[in-house]
Amino acid sequence: MLLHEDTYRHQAALADYCRTGQYNAIPGVREQHVGQYRRLVYNVVDDMLQSAYPLTRHLLSTREWNAMVKEFFSNHPCQSPQVWYMPRELYQYMTQKGHRLLRKYAFLQELLWLEWLEVELFMMEDRPTAYTTIGDLTTDPLVLNPEYALQQFVYPVHLKPAKEITAADKGQYFLALFRKPDSGEVTFMNLSPALVAMLELLQEGPQTMDALVRQCCAAWQLPVTADLLAAAKAFFTQALESRLIIGFKNH
């Protein structure tokens, strides 16, 4: 390495100060101005996290939020060179650490993940897929929106304001988050376990609604009834309108 140990040490000391706010004297540094670096660096990180996690920011007190951000940035070496991707590392940090706030707010881990998923789906690269918007819902193979994620939550973090969620809300909540192809907006649809199973099948490739219903019924040893088919049709009609189902297989 061409860099002398002293030079490295001075650079590391300034970087460490920016991360932790704890200043140890560095030769030649104007102490009355060096605080600008800590302020600028911290503001970038704090702004980005607030932007990615607005619901979490609203849930936590200012003291809790600031303590969390300071702890995260001090202890965690941020790996992403892309600052917009950095907030994912907060979720990972909190989860891996089993942070005390996750115990105070039992639903916080899911809330953080929901917020990050929304960012990721909004920002992620396009996943080109072949489809046509012209088709028949009852007979043509359906194509799933490729920019989507299936998710299961124990708390209804997608349905209720975080401050109103209680232990009584604990349950099983299934949803599909997806990016609308025209607007880029990220939205979600609530799902039943049966619908999750059908979407998982659809993930493997285009299939007709009828085939999806029959495979699920066979797996669960249920008869294919007119009611089931009608319920499936109602769901897929809505899914097509909202673009969770992006269209039909191109013949």
């Binding site: 061409l2 030079t7 941020c78 060179p81 600052v83």
Partner: peptide
Amino acid sequence: SYSKCDNAHLYDLLPIPFTADAVHH
């Protein structure tokens, strides 16, 4: 400038020490 040190990104631009070894590096 530098914006990463000790394997941690800082997301802002820090001044490099004006030294001969830093020039070479």
